[in-house]
C-alpha cells in the first residue's frame, strides 16, 4: 500500500473528526431540540466513517480479490453510514417511519450488492453492479419523487431537506462511475488513484452533510421565535474542516 493512500485516509479521518465536532456542538446547543433533530444518529455518520478510515489507514481489514486489494472497512462504513445519510434526509422531509426504514434498507442492500459485485469475478461482477445501480436509481426516485411530497408539509425543514437531497443525490452519482473506472471494474484508474478519489468523496459526502444540518439547525429550534438567534451561535466551520482535510 502506497504512502499516498495512507496520507489520504489520514486526512479524511481528520476531516471526518471535524464532522464529529460539529455534531457534538449541535448536541450541546440548548437553542435546538436535539431529540427532535435526532442528532444522536448524525454522530454515527462522521464518527463511524472516521473510525473506518483510521482502521483503513492502519491497513486493517484489507483483503486481496483477483489481485485487487479490497478494504472491507470501506464497505462496512458505507453499509452503516450511507443508509443513515439517505434515511436522515427522509426524516428531515418528514417521511413516515416505513419510508425512512425502507430507503435505509434499500441503500444497505445497494452497498451489500456492490460489495458482492466487487468480490465476484466475471459476469457476476457486472450483474451485481447492474443490480446495485438499479437500486441506486430506486433510491434517487424515492429521494426526488417520494420525499418531496412529505417535505412540502414541513415548511421549516424544507430548505434543509432540499440541501441534503441534492447533496446526496448529486454526489453519489460519482460512486458508480469511480467503481467502473476502478481496478474492480474496467481498471482505467489505478488502485491508488481510486483510493484517493474515494477518500476525497467520502469526506465531502459526510462532513459537509452534518455542517448543512448545523447551518440549518434553526429547523429544530426549541422555540421557533428564537430560531434566528440559534443561527448566530459560534461553531466550527465546515470550510475549515475542508481546508484541514486537504
Amino acid at each position: 500500500m502506497s504512502t499516498a493512500i495512507t496520507v489520504s485516509y489520514s486526512i479524511s479521518a481528520v476531516g471526518l473528526l471535524v464532522g464529529v465536532g460539529i455534531v457534538f456542538a449541535l448536541m450541546r446547543s440548548d437553542r435546538v431540540d436535539a431529540e427532535r433533530g435526532k442528532f444522536a444518529w448524525l454522530f454515527i455518520i462522521p464518527g463511524f466513517a472516521a473510525l473506518s478510515y483510521i482502521l483503513m489507514a492502519a491497513e486493517i481489514g484489507v483483503i486481496t480479490v483477483n489481485g485487487n486489494e479490497v478494504y472491507l472497512f470501506r464497505y462496512i462504513d458505507w453499509v452503516v453510514t450511507t443508509p443513515l445519510l439517505v434515511g436522515y434526509a427522509g426524516y428531515v422531509a418528514g417521511a413516515p417511519r416505513k419510508w425512512v426504514l425502507g430507503v435505509a434498507a434499500a441503500d444497505a442492500m445497494m452497498i451489500i450488492i456492490g460489495l458482492g459485485a466487487t468480490l465476484s469475478t466475471g459476469i457476476a461482477t457486472w450483474v451485481g453492479f447492474g443490480v446495485s445501480a438499479g437500486v441506486h436509481l430506486v433510491l434517487l426516485a424515492i429521494l426526488y419523487l417520494v420525499f418531496p411530497m412529505f417535505a412540502r408539509e414541513h415548511r421549516e425543514r424544507y430548505r434543509l431537506f432540499k440541501i441534503l437531497q441534492n447533496h446526496v443525490g448529486l454526489l453519489w452519482i460519482a460512486y458508480p462511475v469511480i467503481w467502473i473506472t476502478s481496478p474492480a471494474g474496467l481498471g482505467y484508474v489505478s488502485a491508488v488513484g481510486t483510493a484517493m478519489i474515494i477518500a476525497y468523496l467520502d469526506l465531502v459526502a459526510k462532513t459537509p452533510y452534518v455542517y448543512f444540518v448545523w447551518t440549518e439547525r434553526a429547523s429544530f429550534a426549541v422555540d421557533p421565535v428564537d430560531a434566528d438567534d440559534a443561527g448566530t451561535e459560534e461553531t466550527i466551520d465546515a470550510d475549515d474542516v475542508a481546508a484541514a482535510a486537504d
Binding site: 469511480i178 473506472t181 491508488v192 478519489i197 476525497y200
Partner: peptide, 9 residues
Amino acid sequence: AATIVMTWA
C-alpha cells in the same frame, strides 16, 4: 485517467 476521474468527481 485517474486525474480526469478525480477532476470529474
